[in-house]
Amino acid sequence: MRGFLLPGLLLILALAGCQNRKANVTPEAVIEVTDVFVKAPEFIDRLVEVDGMVVHVCRESGKRLFLGDEHFKVLASNQIGKFDVNLEGSDIKATGYIREEKIDENYLDEWEQELSTGAEVQLKEAVHTHEAEAAGQDENAISTQLSQIRGYREQIAAGTQGYISFYSLEVIKIEEK
């Protein structure tokens, strides 16, 4: 058994090193980032390609990047664990699954409740839009988050569905143009 241990582990390591970032999948549609928020509702949980320029890569975790002036969020996955900050300024084709997070009054109430304890609360992924950071604010600051909550309540009140949707792409493949 010992004789197989090392070769077996080396084989796994070699496979790990050779693991192809370019998964062999075909998206159902190709969407320009300028159209993504219009078309996203049609493709929830479905595989699409979104094309656009990377305007920001999260410095701390490297697990999210944003495309275009729309700041459409692309999230890392099991296939692509992290984004290189050098992607900023690059035009990419990002293939992945469109995800929707619905934020309603209950969600906002729970969020506000967490903030009211005074404990440090990290900005929730569902509503992490890079808006605050782009404006030079501390996105995790309680005041920033409370301001966001107020804004979302106004949006929900102005709509008819009782919630607002946040769309993102859980990426499985990235190709630079």
Binding site: I12, R21, N78, Q79, I80, G81, V85
Partner: peptide, 25 residues
């Protein structure tokens, strides 16, 4: 200006599980 932190960028990249096979390893 942004530069990758030598050694730490590379080990953190691996720590974050860059793929399914790495996860198993």
């Amino acid at each position: 200006t942004i530069k990758k932190r030598p050694l730490f960028y590379q080990v953190n990249f691996l720590h974050y599980n860059p793929g399914v096979w790495w996860k198993w390893f």
